[in-house]
Nucleic acid binder design. Structure first.
Lengths: 336, 336
DNA sequence: GTGAAAGCGCTAACAC
DNA sequence: GTGTTAGCGCTTTCAC
C-alpha cells in the first residue's frame, strides 16, 4: 500500500490538513512544522495520489493531444513542442491518434471524449465534426492548432493562404514562371478551395501568369508516393513546370525523387518548395526549401490558451495567428 | 456540474450500483433495466469520472511512455506503435521527455515518478539509474524497451550485437572489405563496449579482416552532423573505408551527405548502412539500407508485459527479444 | 497556525 | 437482480 497523507501526518505528529498545506506550498505554516512534515514526507517516501487530488479539485493536470499520428502530426515538431510547453506549465500530455484520413470518420466514437483531461489540443485538419461536439458537450475545452476553425474554440491559427502566397513569391523571386501545385484535396474542384489553394491562385494571378490545365494536382493523401506520382504526371505535361509548390514536405520529397528518376535536375531544371519544414527535408538531396510556422510558438500559445480558458471558462474564444517564414534551401536556389 | 452516476440512477429509477453494473458491462442485469439505464445515460450525456474510478480501483488505464523525444525516440515508429498498442488494450499514453543526453542527468528529479500511471514504458538507452529506482520505489512497474537491461524490470530487448553483426555480414556479402563504424560512445575505449561495437568487432574478426586504427569512430551524439563529421574524417583516412556501418540512421544520413560533399559515390565508392529504419532513410538519395526491429512488435509485447505485470505484480521479470532484419536498399547495392 | 470532519464520484461488500 | 453503504486519498470549509 502506498503511503498517504494520514501516514505522514501521524509520523510528523500533525494533522492531515497541515501536511496538505505543506505539500501544496500554502502559507500559514510555521517553519518548524514545515520542516518536520518535509522530513516525514521524505522518510516515508510519500507521493500524493493524483486521482484523489483530481477528484477533489477537478483539475487533472492532463492535456490530451489529438493528432493524426504522434510521429507524423501535420506540422513537424508539433508533438514534441506541445509536450515541452505543457511540461513547463505543469501539465502532462496524453496522446490520442486520430488515424489516417480514412480512419477519422470513426474517430468521434473511438476517441469519445477523453475522460479525465483538463483540455484537448487538436492538432489536425479535417477533424470529424462530432469530435469537437463531444468534447464541448463534456465540458472539456478544445484548442485548435492550425486550420479548420470552429467559432466555439480557442485557436492558434496558421495563415496557410499567406504561407502559400509567400512560397509562390519566393519561387517568382528565383526566376520561376511555370509554377504547378501538388496536394490539393480531391474535393477541391467542387467544394470550397482550401486556403493553400487560394494563396497559390492569388499569388500566381497577381504575377500575371496563367495556370495551364492540370497545374493544380490533387492527391488523396500527403505521402511521399502521392507527391511522386503527381510530379511524374506534371513532368510529362506538355508545358513542363519549372517549379513545384507542394502542400506538404512529404509530397515535396516524393517530387524530388520523381525529378531524379525523370532525369531532371533540382533546382536547375525544376525548383521544389514544401510546407512544414520537416527534418528529412533538411537532409534530402538537394535540401528542401520550405515554409513553416514555428512549432514551439504554436505549442506555447496553445498551452497558454488552455490555462487562460481553465481560469475563465466563459471568456470569448481567442484566436492567435502564428507567424511563418520561408526557409530557403537548395531546392529553390536561383538559376543564374 | 457534470452528471454523475446518481443522476443517472435517479433518472432511470434504479440504484447507483445498477448503473455502475451497466456502465461496466457486468452480468446479472436484466435486459429491461439495462436498456432503461442506457437510455438515461444517453439522455443525460453521462460520462464516468475517471479520477473517481481510478481512486476506487487503483487502475488509471494510463501508461507513461518515457523517451528522449516523442518525435525522435531511439527507434523510429516506436512512439506511434506504443500509442496504437496501448489504445487497443484500453490504455492511454502519457508522454514524458527524457531530453537530450545532457539533460538526462536531471531527469529523475524532473520526471519524478509520474503519478497516476499504472506502468512506465522506458524507451531509451542510457537511462539515469535514479529514474528506475524512483518508479520502482513508488510501486510503478517499469518495462524496458531496447538495451540497458535492469534485472528488476520486464524488458523487450533488442539484440543489438546480433543486429550489428548482421549489418556487417550484409556489407561483406556485397563485397566490402574495409568496414569502418560510426557512433560508438566516447567512453567506449575505457568503459565496457556496447553491444553494437561487440557485434561489429566479432563479425569483422570472423571474416578475417583487420581493423585499421581509427576505424571505430566515436560520436558525442547521434545527430546528422555527428555522422557527417565522422564520415569526413574517415574519407581522409589513409586506408579509406569502402563501407560505413553507422549505429543509427541519422548518423548514416549525415555520412551520405559527407560522401556527396567529398565527391564519393554511394554505393559505388562507399557503402553505407544504418540502424533503425528511419523514414528519411527510405527517401534519402540514395535510399538507405538499415537494420531494424519491428516497432509494432516491440510495442505490442511491451503492452502485453504491462498487463501481465499488473495482473501478477510479483511474477519474475520477463525478457523478450524482438526480431530484427536487414532492409537492403540502394546505399549498399553490390558493386558489379 | 492547526485540527476535525465532510464529501468529490465511483466500486465492491454485503444484504435483501 | 437490485439496493444500501462504506471508503479510496485528497482538499476544504469551519471551528478552535
Amino acid at each position: 500500500m502506498a503511503t498517504t497523507l494520514r501516514d505522514v501526518a501521524r509520523h510528523a505528529r500533525v494533522s492531515v490538513k497541515t501536511v496538505s498545506n505543506v505539500v501544496n506550498d500554502h502559507p500559514h505554516v510555521s517553519d518548524d512544522v514545515r520542516r518536520r512534515v518535509r522530513e516525514a514526507v521524505r522518510a516515508l517516501g510519500y507521493r500524493p495520489n493524483l486521482a484523489a487530488r483530481t477528484l477533489r479539485t477537478g483539475r487533472a493536470g492532463l492535456l490530451a493531444l489529438i493528432v493524426p499520428d504522434v510521429e507524423a502530426p501535420g506540422l513537424h515538431g508539433l508533438a514534441r513542442e506541445v509536450v515541452r510547453a505543457a511540461t513547463s506549465r505543469g501539465f502532462r500530455v496524453v496522446v490520442d491518434h486520430l488515424g489516417s484520413d480514412t480512419e477519422r470518420a470513426a474517430a468521434p466514437a473511438r476517441i469519445g471524449a477523453p475522460p479525465g483531461v483538463d483540455a484537448v489540443l487538436l492538432g489536425a485538419d479535417m477533424v470529424p465534426p462530432g469530435l469537437i461536439d463531444a468534447q464541448l458537450a463534456a465540458g472539456t475545452p478544445v484548442v485548435l492548432l492550425g486550420e479548420s476553425p470552429d467559432p466555439r474554440c480557442d485557436q492558434v491559427a496558421l495563415d496557410w493562404a499567406r504561407a502559400a502566397a509567400d512560397a509562390i513569391e519566393h519561387l517568382l523571386d528565383t526566376g520561376r514562371r511555370r509554377i504547378a501545385a501538388i496536394g490539393a484535396r480531391p474535393g477541391e474542384a467542387t467544394g470550397p478551395a482550401q486556403p493553400r489553394t487560394l494563396g497559390y491562385r492569388h499569388a500566381v494571378h497577381r504575377a500575371g501568369l496563367d495556370l495551364p490545365a492540370g497545374y493544380l494536382r490533387t492527391t488523396a493523401q500527403q505521402r511521399h508516393e502521392d507527391g511522386y506520382r503527381a510530379a511524374r504526371w506534371l513532368f510529362a505535361h506538355e508545358q513542363r513546370p519549372d517549379a513545384l509548390f507542394c502542400y506538404a514536405d512529404r509530397l515535396a520529397i516524393g517530387a524530388l525523387r520523381a525529378a531524379a528518376d525523370a532525369g531532371l535536375r533540382v533546382p536547375a531544371d525544376v525548383a521544389v518548395i514544401g510546407l512544414g519544414d520537416s527534418e528529412e527535408g533538411r537532409y534530402s538531396r538537394p535540401t528542401l526549401t520550405s515554409v513553416s510556422a514555428d512549432p514551439a510558438f504554436l505549442a506555447r500559445e496553445a498551452v497558454a490558451l488552455v490555462t487562460a480558458r481553465l481560469d475563465r471558462p466563459d471568456a470569448a474564444p481567442a484566436r492567435i495567428t502564428a507567424p511563418h517564414a520561408v526557409l530557403p534551401r537548395e531546392s529553390t536556389r536561383p538559376v543564374v
